[in-house]
């Protein structure tokens, strides 16, 4: 077995280990930590950065720095060369400038020996991925490592989207649950409003029944009490011509006067009672408003 095939075998063993571990991770932090732990067995690098675009929005960036904690940033700002990569989609390889580094990586720059910047663009379904690597004379990266880097990027981004979609699902489920709770709450409110309205309707109906009864009483009072003395007056007029003038004055006129006075009294009573009924009705009505 020659050296390169031995290296190849070891690398693939390392990769299958990483792949197995990645398939078990549950969170983004864990994804970063696991990838970071295995990276050094796959190829040489100073910094590896993977940025994912989803529907033209930066979804996430992973930055791995040798012997440092990985950095995972949601909705990260793109670096200038990354913007270029997303635009032109042509792989790049050139000397590294300090302006190519995110702020937190800047202090490491002086430890690197003639660092080089590698960059690639790829797509996977609706996602656009840009990944870049910094190597130097000590940690040299070459084209033979490309295959394993591609596999790694594919693995990390796939896992990321699985976790992302899982989280989305959980969030949506929570929102749905929230919505259902809201709907139930509103239903209860509506039910209460309906019940209240039923109460108000029966109260108003009771009120109307009472008013109607009062009106009926009033109309009965009018029919009986008001007409009674009037019918007497009319009755006297009916029989008036059966009397002589003298008898008319002596017998009928005093009775006529008596009946007329009674009619006057009842008229006053009717007016009083009408006013009372009206003002009672108003009072009760105001009580409801």
């Amino acid at each position: 077995m020659n050296l390169s095939s031995a290296k190849y075998r070891i690398t693939y063993e390392a990769f299958s280990k990483l792949s197995g571990s990645l398939s078990k991770v549950e969170s983004l932090e864990e994804l970063g930590t696991v990838a970071n732990r295995h990276l050094k067995y796959l190829f040489n690098f100073r910094m590896l950065r993977i940025v994912m675009l989803f529907k033209n929005e930066t979804a996430v960036s992973f930055t791995f720095l040798k012997s440092k904690e990985p950095k995972i940033v949601d909705g990260d700002e793109l670096l200038d060369y990354e913007k270029e990569l997303f635009l032109v989609k042509i792989p790049l390889l050139r000397a590294l400038n300090t302006t190519d580094l995110p702020g937190y990586a800047l202090p490491l720059y002086e430890n690197w020996n003639t660092p080089k910047l590698w960059g690639w663009h790829t797509t996977s379904g609706e996602r656009e991925i840009c990944f870049s690597l910094i190597s130097d004379d000590t940690e040299s990266f070459n084209h033979s490592d490309m295959e394993i880097l591609n596999l790694l990027v594919d693995n990390i981004t796939s896992r990321y989207f699985q976790i992302y979609l899982g989280q989305q699902l959980t969030t949506k489920n929570l929102r749905l649950k929230d919505a259902i709770t809201q709907i139930e709450l509103k239903n209860t409110e509506i039910e209460q409003i309906n019940n209240n309205q039923q109460d108000i309707i029966s109260q108003r109906t009771e009120e109307l029944r009472y008013k109607n009864k009062k009106l009926l009483e009033l109309s009965k009072l009018n029919a009986h009490n008001l007409r009674e003395p009037l019918t007497r007056i009319l009755g006297f007029l009916e029989i008036a011509d059966l009397y002589s003038d003298a008898d008319l004055r002596r017998i009928i006129f005093p009775k006529l006067k008596e009946a007329a006075l009674e009619l006057d009294l009842v008229c006053k009573q009717v007016v009083n009672q009408s006013e009372q009924t009206a003002s009672n009705a108003n009072l009760t009505e105001n009580g409801y408003d």
Binding site: T231, R232, G235, I239, L242, E258
Partner: peptide, 15 residues
């Protein structure tokens, strides 16, 4: 109950 009503009706019945 009205004496006068009876009075009137009585007269009408008589006449």
């Amino acid at each position: 109950d009205q004496k006068m009503a009876n009075f009137i009706n009585k007269k009408l019945i008589e006449v």
